[in-house]
């Protein structure tokens, strides 16, 4: 396919939709319906002033901290539980239950135990994000190829080297699947934890706009959250492609 055709497929529909949106709202005076140009104009004023420092960056910081901690914790615990059969048998039903609790209900619980502050918000994100990583790591570690395992034993590869070249390697596709799920859960929990009795953050700011009927500002907030979601998923796809290059290559060959 020629470059121009690919570009047309890539931006065609988005541009068409934007033009439609613009054309349909051109004479509209309804207060609730946002206009694309207006949103574009106020977007910078709303989010790149003081709010960038007081709301946006702290929110992103909490999100990244929570997700990073849950990835590390999830992988470490997952390797331990996944490699010890007895531990796996003991914890499996409990973990299935803990994972089934909708993470947002932990916000009132943690607000009670920790209080409403930054630690609580990070804790909420960790409690929600750790399960996909943990359970996928357990599965991944458990499913290590027995032949590879035996080969490692025969060649005397053990300890750190075995962990790095065998266990983590073969579990990594599963672990990446878990991380992808936790990223989207983390974003959701970041927003909700801030909507819940907070005084700063993206979620708080958006709810504040809604309560004061600043409808266009509210829309820019929704768009910002969307952009954040898209950015996270792009960063993830890029990382996944690099980390799992060997795996995708292997699958291509298998076909």
């Amino acid at each position: 396919m020629s470059l121009a055709k690919r570009l047309a497929y890539f931006v065609g529909l988005p541009i068409l939709l934007l033009v439609l949106w613009w054309a349909l709202t051109i004479g509209n005076t309804n207060f609730f319906v946002p206009k694309p140009l207006q949103l574009f104009e106020i977007f910078g004023d709303v989010w790149f002033g003081d709010r960038l420092v007081t709301d946006v960056l702290p929110s992103i910081g909490r999100l990244l901290a929570g997700v990073a901690i849950s990835i590390v914790l999830g992988i470490v615990l997952g390797i331990v539980i996944g490699s010890v059969r007895l531990l796996r048998q003991l914890t499996e039903p409990s973990l299935e239950f803990l994972r089934a609790i909708p993470p947002p209900v932990l916000i009132p619980v943690l607000a009670l135990i920790i209080g409403i502050n930054d630690q609580m918000k990070v804790a909420v994100i960790i409690f929600g994000c750790i399960w996909p990583v943990l359970l996928n790591t357990i599965e991944g570690v458990r499913a290590v190829d027995p032949v590879l395992n035996d080969t490692c034993s025969v060649y005397g590869i053990s300890g750190g080297a075995r962990m790095r070249y065998l266990v983590l390697r073969s579990a990594s596709p599963q672990i990446m699947t878990g991380i992808r799920q936790s990223l989207s859960i983390g974003l959701i929990l970041m927003v909700i934890s801030e909507m819940f009795g907070s005084s700063s953050g993206l979620g708080y700011a958006i709810v504040q706009f809604q309560r004061t009927f600043s409808v266009p500002e509210m829309w820019t907030g929704i768009i910002l959250l969307g952009l954040l979601g898209v950015a996270l998923s792009l960063v993830f796809q890029f990382t996944e492609k690099r980390v799992l290059r060997w795996y995708h290559g292997l699958r291509e060959v298998d076909r």
Binding site: L13, P14, L17, L187, I192, M195, M218, G221
Partner: peptide, 26 residues
């Protein structure tokens, strides 16, 4: 399939809780 790819990939990661204020207003 080709024409909708970017649009779907853009709309999909938007966290649905971002729509909470909209839901309340509507």
């Amino acid at each position: 399939r080709r024409a909708t790819h970017t649009t779907i990939e853009f709309l999909r990661p938007i966290p649905s809780v971002a729509l909470i204020p909209l839901a309340v207003l509507l």
